[in-house]
């Protein structure tokens, strides 16, 4: 069963907001985790761990470095959801 894109973006935004304290409006598809959202590597791993749990997907550690933007993470989660 595939995941709806809007649903994944909303769920991931919720995780990012709780981790960073940023307002939800600041989290958009094209935002860079490092440059725009000030997410360091430990925070990124926290977000990934919580996202794996929330969406019941697996995001291997070596895939995380390619998830530079919110949109890239959303797409990865949808792809991982479809192959699951």
């Amino acid at each position: 069963m595939g995941l709806e894109r809007q649903e994944v973006l909303a769920g991931l935004t919720e995780i990012i907001v709780e981790e960073t304290g940023l307002p939800a409006e600041a989290v958009e598809d094209d935002k860079s985790f490092v440059e725009d959202l000030d997410v360091d590597s430990l925070s990124m791993m926290t977000i990934v761990t919580l996202a794996e749990d929330k969406f019941s997907v697996r995001i291997p550690d070596d895939a995380v470095k390619d998830l530079t933007t919110v949109g890239a993470a959303v797409d990865y989660i949808i792809g991982a959801g479809e192959s699951a």
């Binding site: 430990l42 761990t49 749990d53």
Partner: peptide, 10 residues
């Protein structure tokens, strides 16, 4: 183990 958060030790 995968569900353990990375901030656990700090």
């Amino acid at each position: 183990a995968r569900r353990v958060l990375p901030m656990t030790v700090p």
